[in-house]
Design a protein around this nucleic acid. Structure first.
Length: 259
DNA sequence: ATGGCAGGCTATGCCTGA
């Protein structure tokens, strides 16, 4: 089984890339589920029919202009839950579902936060705390859990292209890293840490100033695994290829393989 | 040098992103 996460920065613009990428992954090791963030689509505009025609099932949770998440899968997912239960949120940032073989997948687009101390930063921390409680409840109900998505948090200084620029700033503050650690402490492992760190570890590059060419990146997209799922994990890959395509998303897909 | 680029919309400039 292969599970992926990808912030596509508008599914309207990026649907051809998503279909091309899913198609290229077919064969020996096809993608079973990909959690997508920043669809930027209202529910009525979600390209459900186009995906189905291409052989993919989907579940979506969208809003106008901003945010929006979905799960695209080879087999239909079940028990779809949208948003964080019990957390009143106008922003469509979370969707969860269970795969055919019983893996509970929570797909999240974590709040950016704008700047440390900004009111959006406070919302980010409140929101992440609610996500942490939700994950804790999910771990009590399911053995195999994956919490995937765009976390908008670079876990360590090594996950930034230039710590001089990033340390202490948004995405890299002690508060955000502490919140991520608290989530991990509930019983999850960052799949990236299961294998030798690749030379290229970033998952996002700034559109500006030739960020990709100059490798001005961050590692902010993650797949966090419960112990039972971690035991099945045989591979981790950041696929930089779609970032090289014409008119790409600023994020690139991250994939976990399971036996 | 604190911007650059990209997407979406109240659109022909502004907001958000990371």
């Amino acid at each position: 089984m292969r599970l992926a996460t990808w912030n596509v920065n508008s599914l309207n613009v990026r649907l051809p890339h998503v279909l091309q990428w899913l198609n290229e992954q077919r064969g020996d090791a096809p993608i079973d589920v990909v959690g997508i963030q920043e669809t930027k689509l209202t529910d009525e505009k979600f390209p459900h029919a186009e995906l189905l025609e291409a052989g993919w099932h989907s579940a979506w949770h969208g809003q106008k202009t901003y945010n929006g998440v979905c799960l695209i899968s080879r087999e239909p997912m079940t028990d779809i839950v949208k948003g964080i239960p019990g957390f009143d949120d106008e922003q469509a940032r979370v969707i969860a579902g269970t795969t055919a073989d019983g893996v509970r997948v929570i797909n999240a687009y974590v709040v950016n936060g704008k700047a440390v101390g900004d009111e959006k930063f406070d919302y980010k921390l409140r929101w992440f705390s609610a996500l942490t409680d939700y994950v804790t409840e999910t771990l009590a109900e399911h053995e195999q859990v994956a919490v995937v998505g765009d976390y908008n948090i670079a876990p360590t200084a090594e996950d930034t292209h230039d710590p001089e620029v990033w340390e202490g700033k948004i995405l890299c503050s002690p508060q955000e890293r502490g919140a991520l650690q608290k989530l991990l402490d509930r019983g999850l492992t960052d799949a990236f840490t299961l294998f030798d760190a690749p030379e290229q570890r970033f998952t996002w590059w700034d559109y500006r100033a030739a960020g990709f060419r100059r490798n001005l990146g961050l590692r902010i997209d993650h797949l966090l695994l419960s112990d039972a799922l971690k035991a099945r994990c045989t591979g981790f890959e950041i696929d930089r290829e779609p970032r090289t395509w014409e008119r790409p998303s600023d994020h690139t897909p991250v994939i976990c393989t399971f036996e």
